[in-house]
């Protein structure tokens, strides 16, 4: 065990999986950086410095820097996975899915099904997401709901260094295409993480806090926002269960159902807009299954239906915060 950042935990998982399996290769823009220049190799080690040092350990055969060609390298990763490799492709910002949507959505997600189950597609797509850095509308989105909507993809949203490391190992060993969504504001988060390799099964939520009044389901960075609210509410005598699903495909509905049956109240906190996102999805699943157990309407805490603004004051208003979560929880317990 040692204290590791979310960034270091992800790097360690990549390194351990590459050591474990020679068919694991990394593909992406500036994973090393420095190719074709007059300076150092591994100059960036990834746009967010996640892959720093892996070039030196595994060489350019396995750490493949790409031109700015998302459609081509994502498609190549899909093809390589179908042909037996275990590629980890990095999409620098999830917003750029727009450029390679066909490769992920029409090719990777449907490959196995379309060809009648003949193939495995052990592809991992690492991508980054989230607002809070004043990067504006094309570099700040959370598209987890979109990814979740495409049958055939598995979707991972780690909220802690420990989860990130274990879930990434699982993702790489998985025989289906997995989208692994890293929140950029979490890269510096630190906690105790085992040094050795370990996996965390998909579809097992983490119960972050336990309480009998309200169930809160939150994803990725919103887990921390919700946790802040839960702690503050405890001082007011309101006790919440906070659930981090960790993967949205597969989704651990059992854990959510068990908790909602006990509390009768559900709040979902998500960083994507309210339409067609994870908040709506989980609300619908729970409403269908547990309508009679609900003592109050299900509530969603999300940004409004607008693109992400760049100005910091607007971005702050855009993002759900603990105060908003608390206000909604208070309303629910009064009902």
């Amino acid at each position: 065990m040692s204290i590791k950042s979310y960034r270091a935990a992800i790097r360690e998982a990549l390194e351990q999986e590459m050591l474990r399996d020679p068919d694991v290769i990394l593909i992406g823009e500036d994973l090393a950086g420095g190719a074709g220049g007059g300076g150092e190799d591994d100059a960036w080690g990834g746009p967010m410095a996640v892959t720093k040092g892996l070039l030196g350990k595994f060489g350019r055969q396995r750490v493949l820097d790409t031109p700015v060609s998302e459609a081509a390298f994502m498609g190549a990763a899909v093809g390589a996975a179908a042909a037996g490799l275990r590629p980890v492709a990095e999409l620098m910002f999830c917003d750029f899915i727009g450029v390679c949507c066909d490769q992920i959505v029409n090719q990777a997600a449907k490959y196995r099904y379309t060809f009648g189950g003949q193939d495995r597609l052990p592809l991992t797509v690492r991508t980054t997401m989230g607002a809070g850095q004043q990067l504006g509308s094309q570099h700040s989105q959370v598209l987890v709901g979109l990814f979740t909507s495409f049958a055939g993809l598995k979707v991972v949203v780690p909220s802690t260094p420990y989860d990130a490391k274990g879930l990434l190992a699982t993702a790489i060993r998985d025989d289906d295409p997995v989208i692994f969504c890293e929140h950029r504001l979490l890269y510096r988060m630190r906690e105790e993480v085992p040094d050795g390799s370990y996996t965390i099964p998909f579809g097992e939520a983490r119960i972050v806090e336990e309480g009998g009044d309200v169930t809160i389901v939150a994803l990725s960075r919103m887990v921390h926002v919700a946790a802040e609210a839960v702690h503050a509410l405890r001082a007011e005598g309101i006790h919440c269960t906070l659930i981090d699903p960790r993967t949205t495909v597969p989704l651990d509905t059992d854990t959510i159902f068990d908790s909602v049956e006990a509390t009768g109240r559900l709040v979902i906190v998500d960083e994507a807009g309210p339409r067609c996102g994870m908040a709506s999805d989980i609300a619908a699943i729970v409403a269908e299954e547990l309508f009679s157990a609900l003592r109050a309407p299900i509530r969603r805490v999300t940004p409004p239906c607008v693109p992400v603004p760049a100005a910091p004051n607007l971005e702050k208003l855009y993002l759900p915060d603990a105060a908003r979560v608390m206000a909604v929880v208070r309303e629910l317990v009064q009902r």
């Binding site: 823009e29 420095g34 190719a35 074709g36 220049g37 790409t66 031109p67």
Partner: peptide, 13 residues
């Protein structure tokens, strides 16, 4: 300008 981010044109193009 010779570079896309940290990658040189001699490699990428």
């Amino acid at each position: 300008n010779g570079y896309a981010e940290a990658t040189g044109t001699a490699y990428a193009i």
